[in-house]
């Protein structure tokens, strides 16, 4: 595994007022990446949107009876692979049990994950002792 070109680790309160800040981190990473030949503005928008949607999901799935809710965002770029994880202590969800996206019926649930799946190369969801993790990866090569 190569030395990470960029690594960002941030913990925020589980409140929507911090969403723009998290999204801005995604945009800043897009502008800081070396040797990217794609559309940098589109990458910035995509990282902003994917991170924001993942944090919104974490906030929505928070345990209302749990301790003060925090969301841990970790972003790591190494070997042209960008890996972003969003971890929280909430209930989480199983990606495999989510219904397939139906564009005509997306008023209530699923738009955020639908967007993330369209913007990133792979999306995974799993539990660790620290909580529920949504992992998003994108190849920038």
């Amino acid at each position: 595994m190569g030395i990470p070109e960029i690594e960002v680790d941030v913990v925020i309160p589980g409140q929507t007022r911090y969403l723009a800040m998290v999204g801005n981190i995604g945009e800043q990473i897009a502008s800081a990446i070396d040797r990217y030949s794609g559309d940098r503005d589109l990458l910035a928008y995509s990282l902003n949107l994917a991170l924001t949607e993942a944090v919104v999901n974490a906030i929505e799935h928070a345990d209302p009876n749990g301790p003060e809710h925090k969301v841990h965002v970790h972003i790591r770029l190494a070997d042209e692979d960008l890996r972003m994880t969003v971890c929280d202590q909430g209930h989480g969800f199983d990606l495999d049990t989510l219904p397939p996206p139906d564009l005509d019926d997306m008023l209530e649930r699923g738009r955020g994950l639908f967007l993330i799946r369209n913007l990133m190369d792979s999306v995974a969801s799993y539990r660790t002792p620290d909580g529920h993790v949504l992992e998003m990866t994108k190849s920038l090569g």
């Binding site: 969403l19 924001t52 008023l107 967007l115």
Partner: peptide
């Protein structure tokens, strides 16, 4: 500058 899934929901709902 920016529309999230929550913003899309508003537009989709109005469309419907």
């Amino acid at each position: 500058d920016y529309v999230s899934s929550a913003g899309l929901r508003v537009l989709l709902k109005a469309t419907k």
